[in-house]
Amino acid sequence: MIECRAPKTKEEFQQYYQLRWQLLRKPWQQPEGSEQDQWESQSIHRAVFEQQQIVAVGRLHFINQYQAQIRYMAVSDAALGKGYGKLLINALEYQAQLRGARKITLEAREISVGFYQHHNYLVLAKSHLLFQQIKHFTMEKTLSPLASHLGEQARLLQNTWHSTIPMSKAMNIAISYYDGSKLATHCEPLFNKNLHNTMFAGSIYTLATLTGWGWVYLQLANNHCQGDIVLADASIKYIAPVAGVASGQTNNEVASGECAPLLKQQKARFNVEVNIYSGDKVAAKFTGKYVVIPKDE
């Protein structure tokens, strides 16, 4: 069985980093631990599992709100030629698009330039010489929107936020994905930092609240209903610091409510759960109870 997913357990992460080191550092006499950097906790990690063993690895992290970088791509010798590199890069690009990236950059080893060119990355310039031996080239790819990216209603929602809620504009809260069953949002990381260089708790709460509010807004639009959306009650659990770009996500499975009462000029109620992600990790869990008050005709 072949899987391409994030490592989940401590043992899987040990495998993941061990393969990174064996392929990308050990041949150049670099110590264990040199295969990791300061971005690990805020990154999106993907591995290809073959019979429950990791045979290929890759990582994505965000440089800013709209630009991501791929690093540490490697495929074991025994797994070469099986298309696992393609699996990895497709998975990482999807996660970048889902979180709002418009561009991906990377530093490719000379031997890998052709692989990335095959996947529509362009060489920008010669880069550094790693370990005084390995030539690198800076490469870049402009990402196309996901096929079901932003509909007109989602664009109207984003405009509504920015025109009526000053904080949303200051945070640059934006919709990165909506397909009718899933909504993903993101915001500017630098504006929302606290003294610890992680995301301010109030900004996390605001992103989660507006993601839930946005979900309700889109349900009304999809059902041709109108009403004033208010947050009646909410709770949030902060699980881990948010470093880098935060992603707010909700979907049909964790949201409930119906628009039907509005047609009878009655209040409609929605419960929406929102996860705030830092890389692969759920950093906060929000539950909001929203009430939609019918507008007077």
Results as ranks from 00 to 15, higher is better:
G58I: 11
A268M: 13
L218G: 05
N194V: 12
T160W: 10
G288A: 07
I293S: 06
D77R: 02
H119I: 10
S148G: 05
Q249H: 15
L157I: 03
Q30G: 06
H61Q: 06
C225P: 01
I236C: 11
I134H: 08
Y17Q: 00
S181G: 13
Q226I: 09
E40T: 03
D296V: 07
A47G: 08
A243K: 10
V274F: 14
E12V: 09
A91G: 04
A79S: 05
S148Q: 09
C259T: 15
Q42Y: 08
L98S: 09
L87T: 06
L220S: 04
I276D: 13
P241A: 07
G100R: 14
Y277G: 04
R5C: 11
N251R: 13
N192E: 05
K141D: 02
Q38D: 09
R59T: 10
I175H: 05
Q15L: 03
A255H: 14
S76M: 03
G227H: 13
Q226E: 12
G58Y: 15
S163Y: 01
G81M: 03
E253W: 14
K169Y: 13
A240S: 11
L263D: 13
Y116E: 04
S148N: 10
Q95H: 12
G100F: 13
S247C: 15
H118F: 09
I229R: 10
G180E: 11
A56R: 06
W161Q: 01
W39G: 00
K289Y: 15
K193C: 04
K193G: 02
L146W: 10
M171A: 12
M199I: 09
Q265E: 15
L19P: 00
W39N: 07
Q153I: 00
V57I: 15
R155G: 02
F49Y: 12
Q266F: 14
Y66N: 08
R20L: 00
A260N: 14
R269W: 15
Y205C: 00
L146R: 02
R46T: 06
H186I: 00
T287W: 14
T160A: 02
H45Q: 05
Y178M: 07
G214C: 01
E93T: 05
Q52N: 14
L124I: 07
Q51G: 09
S203K: 00
S34R: 05
N223D: 09
E152H: 09
Y84N: 03
H186A: 02
G83R: 05
F131G: 06
